[in-house]
Design a protein around this nucleic acid. Sequence first.
DNA 1: CTTTAAACCTGGTCGC
DNA 2: TGCGACCAGGTTTAAA
Length: 272
Amino acid sequence: MPELPEVEIICLGLREKILGDIILGAEHITKLKLRQEVPINISKKITNAKIVAIERRAKYIQIFLSNNLVILIHLGMSGKLLIKDSSYILQKHDHFVVKFNDKWLVFNDPRRFGLITLIEENNLKKHPIFAKLGMEPFDAKFTPKYLEGVFKNKQPIKLALMDNYKLVGVGNIYASESLFFSKISPTRASNSLEKKELIALHYNIKKILENSIKLGGSSLKDYAKVSGEKGYFQNFFYVYGREGKDCRNCGAKIIKIKQAGRASFYCADCQK
DNA sequence: CTTTAAACCTGGTCGC
DNA sequence: TGCGACCAGGTTTAAA
């Protein structure tokens, strides 16, 4: 499902809808296991707390509560967070509901690669999930130089880009797209990039993520905003999902290959 | 150490 | 219409 832009859009939507609201109750609907077990007492612990902040880190959504707890949510491949009014009837794959005065926050995830858990705010940065995460693309410290430092082995650049210990938020779509605009083949060794290529890649990662956020993210199958509305950035893909179609730059056919079990798309004429 | 593959899941699509 | 194979915005674990 979602990469950085999609998670960012979800956070924006959540802020608009539930920031400052008091949690009246919560319900753990299914007993099915997600990426981790949902903590047994989560509903009780979050009830009566106020939502004081909502922040994204990597592809995680952090909902900060007034009682110094943080609801941590990851959407996996197929997760959705939707705001529904309190007359909402539960659907298949609804796993967790947070109830407010006049609305519900519903976590739905068919494939159950997602995560919902509770962490103490003081332990957030030390928590195993966050301890080793790499740089945020919109952090001022994210520079071409940083990329150079992190691309120190001969791993294919596409895989290095998707490595969350190096750089967070870039997944399968935006890795392919940012390499296209940087004219770099996804198979290139990450430590073979020239300075001007690192500069281009750094620029294009930020640019593409920004553009996608402006268009509400990319909606392929599952992803939707908290309102249920779709994003539009998928209409502006240059390579992702365009196997066999003409390169929008040179007209050559877009190629699909597999890297570490994931599809990569690129133009062999434009990307070297 | 790095690198690759498999595992976790459901649901949609495609070919026979 | 059915069935099997394969695919999907991610992350973690085990194996090589």
